[in-house]
């Protein structure tokens, strides 16, 4: 099998001796064009890996920031087809930065699993994170995705104990996402000590990179987490920059994309200032 973009990117991060920056934004938030502009610039701004949210009407694992992002996107008429269009557009300019689609199962199920995987692969999607598909439901999408050559990334949480971890790692590919708090996105933050011990625990069950998310909001937090784990995810904080640059009607104000990208640049400086294993 050809080496995947995700594997190549983590190999390069290892060579550089640093943890990576993963950004999350919702496709179509606040509108297609703005969201596409942001996506096109985000790699250059310093994101090592891009998570693109597939909006869903009922994002039950997300806090208010990502809920509202989904709402804005759907209100603007965004669809799964348009999410894939965005990836396709991105791939004409950047064939290296991995893109992982993140969301919930229903929009994929309704699009049709086989059709979705074929279209996603063709568009240049590297991996999927589907919040409501635990290992117990692996026959739904995980196994078909692996067969289609797309990584299926499993979530782990503080509640995923050592007895359960081997079950989660069985079909894990790409990387392992660690949700560092028990809760929804954009709320509390875990302590560095907790993240460090969780990282060690996960590493004893897998050779895959460990990416830590939930509650990471500032360049300092990113730097701290990236010095422990293989990459850190910033989601709600980036989405909040979008939300802060809308007019009263919810439309993008001039400069939104620049502000969001300069925030990403700050975060990227954070991960580049810290050395892996320094903490």
């Amino acid at each position: 099998m050809m080496e995947t973009r995700i594997a190549k990117r983590f190999a390069r991060l290892a060579e550089e001796g640093r943890g990576g920056l993963v950004t999350f934004s919702t496709a179509g938030d606040p509108d297609y064009e703005t969201s596409l502009d942001l996506l096109m610039g985000i790699g250059k701004a310093g994101a090592d890996l891009i998570e693109l949210g597939m909006p869903f009407s009922d994002p039950m694992a997300d806090g208010p920031a990502v809920q509202m992002a989904s709402g804005r996107s759907l209100l603007g008429g965004h669809t799964m087809t348009r999410t894939l269009d965005m990836v396709r557009a991105f791939r004409t300019k950047d064939d290296e930065t991995p893109i992982v689609l993140m969301g919930y199962y229903n929009p994929i199920y309704v699009y049709g699993v086989d059709r979705f995987l074929a279209d996603a692969k063709q568009a240049g999607v590297d991996g999927l994170i589907v919040v409501d598909l635990p290992p117990e439901e692996e026959s739904e999408l995980c196994i078909p995705a692996l067969e289609a050559g797309i990584n299926f990334i499993f979530l782990t949480a503080p509640t995923t104990d050592d007895v359960r971890l081997p079950r989660v790692m069985e079909k894990a590919s790409g990387f392992v996402y660690y949700a560092s708090i028990t809760g929804i996105t954009g709320t509390a933050s875990a302590s560095e000590a907790d993240i460090s011990s969780a990282y060690k625990r996960l590493k004893s069950h897998t050779d895959l990179p460990i990416v830590v998310g939930f509650g990471i909001n500032t360049p300092e937090q990113v730097a701290a987490v990236a010095s422990i784990a293989d990459a850190a995810v910033v989601g709600s904080a980036l989405v909040n920059v979008i939300a802060a640059n809308l007019d009263q009607g919810g439309k993008a104000q001039a400069g939104l994309v620049d502000k969001a990208l300069s925030f990403v640049s700050e975060l990227a400086k954070g991960v580049r200032s810290s050395t892996k294993g320094a903490a």
């Binding site: 039950m60 694992a61 199962y105 919040v131 409501d132 598909l133 635990p134 290992p135 117990e136 439901e137 499993f154 979530l155 782990t156 949480a157 503080p158 509640t159 995923t160 104990d161 359960r164 989660v168 949700a179 028990t182 809760g183």
Partner: peptide
Amino acid sequence: EDGRFGIYGGRFVAETLMPL
């Protein structure tokens, strides 16, 4: 044993809830 009635039912929840 998978919590299904035919194709319906199941356990479509986030990992955090799964052990619970």
